[in-house]
Amino acid sequence: MRPDFGLLLINLGINNTVYVKTDPREIALLEGLAKDDRQAIETIYKQHYNMVQTLIINNNGSADDARDVFQEAMIVLYEKARSGTFELNCLLKTYIYSVCRRLWLKRLQQQQKFVSDIENVSETVPVEDELEAHGQRNTEFQMMEKAMQHIGEPCRSLLEAFYIQKRNMLDIAGHFGYTNADNAKNQKYKCLMRLKKLFFAAYKNNTP
């Protein structure tokens, strides 16, 4: 017996992604993330961590794996918020679930633990594109981290003080024991050149 047209249409309706307007409270949370609001992080953590942990543990993972995966999803969310997009087009829960599921599948594949699929306990949204962009940024951060480790001390501390902690040259000169700001500047320049060299070498090959 062939299914009639009505039934077919309903099936199509379910398979297509249903766009849901994001809850204003959830938009507020994402805005909080973009502003480095610790409260926002805590709220999302409390609401969704246990769900992710259950997902990971039910699929051959440990509590540590759950933490790693959830925090990576939080970074994806952070990047999204920082880029100015607060519209998820679905519930925050669905979004986090989709990202974590995807991330965990990828990690299982890397560990050669071939699993056919993680059974879906709740609905998912496609997140492949975002995760690809996230993967690229992750690689870049790893390049920077590795380059930083390679230049050694005191270069690392000096550059971190200037570019990450954003302290001024006079302060840095005092702290690192340089006689004046110009000396510190001189040293900083040398260090920066080395860091740039290391970073761009990795960047060209796109391998950290």
Binding site: D36, Q71, I75, Y78, R82, F141, M144, Y163, I164, F199
Partner: peptide, 12 residues
């Protein structure tokens, strides 16, 4: 890149 790196580290 440095800026984002520092943000990323702090966020982590």
């Amino acid at each position: 890149q440095m800026d984002r790196f520092s943000d990323w580290k702090q966020y982590k």
